[in-house]
């Protein structure tokens, strides 16, 4: 394209004509950078287990992506960082004691079934890391529900299983609690979130809609809203999972709907369903509604009075 364009004096092309400097690798590696506080926190709290799961998951994810693309004789795009991000995100949703074989399986499912089968980055209807996790949580229900305390790795219940008021807010905030690798420290997650917001990668509408809905609903229903925000993987999901550009709506209005819908589903699952935590399900369920949300929040075509069908 560019070579042709240089030869001509007048270039006629469809919009957009003004592009910013963002590319897939730039965005992906800023996400990786934003994940560093969480990486440090998970290794600090869960030690070598965290490192083991992170390395296995990332390496498997990148290898699976490369294998799929070379099998299909497509250009191998592992250097864009998207498979690395999926691998790290998957690792952060896993419990610290999970055996390595399950991590490998989860990462393969995330990349192959969650992403490559649909044609690779940009086409996957569901968040790949969450597809991998959902697969693991139905296949190895026990392994996926074995939680240990930080540092000494004694089997304990997570704050969400204990109920509100048992664990002090400070512990929930700094992360000295049982849970998935990446979800425990609210502080580390927020640090990453602030950086992404500054970089303009994060869409505040989805986060605000998601967290706000959970806060307001739990408050109205007579539960402890601060506890519901800090416990479990809500913050991690809201900042790193729900805001995935591929699987969330493209319109601003649609993003509000996405966030509010996810919050609604999360509160319903946490308060009334069998599972203690529902962040994964709430995001997957909103992922599946994303094409419908896009379809019904199409903006007015410029210069026309009615909503367009284009």
């Amino acid at each position: 394209m560019e070579n042709n364009a240089n030869k001509r004096l007048l270039v006629v092309s469809p919009s957009p004509h003004v592009r910013d400097g963002d590319t897939t690798p730039k965005i992906m590696f800023s996400v990786v950078l934003a994940l560093f506080p969480v990486i440090f926190a998970s290794i600090y709290f869960f030690g070598l287990d965290a490192l083991r799961i992170l390395v296995i998951s990332s390496v498997t994810a990148v290898a699976a992506e490369a294998a799929c693309q070379s099998l299909r004789k497509k250009p191998v795009t592992i250097y864009d960082g998207s498979a690395l991000v999926t691998g790290i995100l998957l690792a952060f949703t896993l419990p610290p004691q999970i055996p390595s074989f399950a991590v490998v399986l989860g990462a393969i499912v995330a990349i192959v079934i969650g992403k490559q089968i649909f044609g690779g980055l940009g086409y996957n209807p569901f968040n790949p890391a969450l597809v991998g996790r959902a697969f693991l949580s139905v296949s190895f229900a026990n392994l996926m529900a074995t939680w240990v305390s930080p540092f000494d790795a004694v089997t304990v219940a997570t704050p969400l299983q204990l109920g509100s008021g048992v664990v002090p807010y400070a512990e929930l905030f700094f992360g000295n609690i049982a849970g998935s690798l990446g979800e425990t420290s609210a502080l580390a997650i927020l640090l990453g979130g602030v950086y992404l917001l500054y970089r303009g990668v994060l869409d505040y509408r989805i986060c605000a809609g998601y967290l706000g809905t959970v806060f307001v609903l739990t408050l109205v229903l007579g539960h402890d809203p601060v506890y519901h925000l800090l416990a479990g993987s809500l913050l991690f999901g809201a900042i790193f999972m729900a805001t995935d550009m591929v699987t969330s709506p493209v319109t601003p209005k649609g993003r509000w709907i996405f966030g509010i819908g996810a919050g609604l589903i999360l509160v319903i699952i946490r308060l009334w369903a069998k599972a203690p935590e529902g962040v994964m399900y709430s995001i997957l369920l909103m992922n599946m509604l994303t094409p419908l949300i896009n379809r019904f929040t199409r903006p007015r075509i410029y210069g026309q009075g009615v909503k367009g069908n284009a």
Binding site: G114, F118, V131, A134, V138, A273, M288
Partner: peptide, 20 residues
């Protein structure tokens, strides 16, 4: 084929409503 795979992932997501 891809429809069946999507359906499978949808069914995974619907497991969240279990016990409601």
């Amino acid at each position: 084929a891809i429809a069946f795979i999507i359906a499978g992932i949808l069914a995974l997501a619907f497991k969240g409503f279990e016990g409601l």
